[in-house]
């Protein structure tokens, strides 16, 4: 298993609060890796470190063997893309204009808008199904449409590796599935390596080819969903008693939380 992107013996901390110590992760090439774990387990922090937003206080994030904090930001941005959890659409900006900003790392003073830029932006908008929205102001779009536009911008960056920080937060179930299907297609058809932080275990199990389960800042288990998502592990990581059955649609593991034992009304224990 080859990994272009890996974190080696990282200590991740904000100010005085240390989130992870001696954390080592490898992102298998061409995988759709999903990081799961309970709230505050350090999964978003891990993604911030991998995407260069947080510098490890010890250890390093290596991209193709080199420390990402020692290489020019723009050069990294041609290989490693990120869809942040929250981005601000500038006032009055249109969809096509926003997507075209994803071309920044490929542009220069005298190379402001090449034919390649134009073609890639059109492709990215087609891939995410926002071509018809090209001239609409981003502010007028629905949440699901907006997330597809941001994804199109990240795609236009044309990076073989793309990190997604909770890409389905704030979306309703239909739009969540739409975004996840889109990610799965990008992974399968374009051969990109995707790394996503997700809250929904069942979505993680359904879409991921590789899971990283975290608790208290440490990696508890890694591997394909079939081996990672077991009743024992879910109980260990999330503290949730459950049964794991086969997803009737895809055959992937499906977590069914155990029913609360009901206390009959009127009976006190």
């Amino acid at each position: 298993m080859r990994s272009r992107l890996r974190g080696s013996a990282m200590t991740l901390a904000y100010e005085r609060r240390t989130i992870s110590r001696e954390l080592t992760v490898e992102i298998p090439d061409r995988s759709f890796t999903v990081v799961i774990g309970p709230n505050a387990c350090g999964k978003s922090t891990l993604l911030r470190a991998l995407s260069r937003l947080l510098q490890p206080s010890t250890g390093a994030v290596l991209l193709d063997g080199a420390d990402i904090h020692r290489r020019p930001a723009r050069e990294i941005a041609k290989t490693l893309g990120l869809l942040p959890q929250s981005s601000i659409a500038p006032d009055g900006i249109g969809v096509a204009e926003l997507v075209s900003r994803g071309r920044y790392p490929h542009q220069g003073l005298l190379r402001q808008w090449s034919r390649e830029d134009e073609a890639v932006v059109a492709e990215s908008m087609a891939a995410t199904g926002v071509t018809d929205l090209a001239d609409r102001p981003v502010a007028e779009l629905s949440g699901g449409q907006r997330q597809r536009v941001w994804l199109a911008m990240a795609l236009a960056q044309q990076t073989p590796l793309l990190l997604l920080d909770e890409p389905t937060t704030y979306l309703d179930i239909a739009h969540q599935i739409e975004i996840m299907d889109l990610c799965a297609r990008l992974h399968e058809e374009e051969g990109r390596t995707l790394v996503a932080v997700l809250h929904d275990l069942n979505q993680a199990a359904r879409y991921a080819t590789h899971l990283i389960a975290m608790r208290d800042g440490q990696v508890v288990a890694t591997g394909p969903p079939q081996t990672v998502v077991t009743a024992a592990l879910v109980e260990e990581v999330f503290g949730l008693p459950c049964r794991v059955i086969d997803d009737p649609e895809t055959g992937t593991p499906l977590v069914v939380p155990a029913a609360r034992r009901r206390t009959p009304i009127g009976v006190t224990t």
Binding site: S51, P84, Q85, I88, P90, R101, Q107, L109, Q157
Partner: peptide
Amino acid sequence: LAGAGPALRLMEMGDDSANALGVP
């Protein structure tokens, strides 16, 4: 104008987005 203008435009979208696009 020429050196920082385009990068400044990206910084309107938030630090994380600008960083991801390769702006120091």
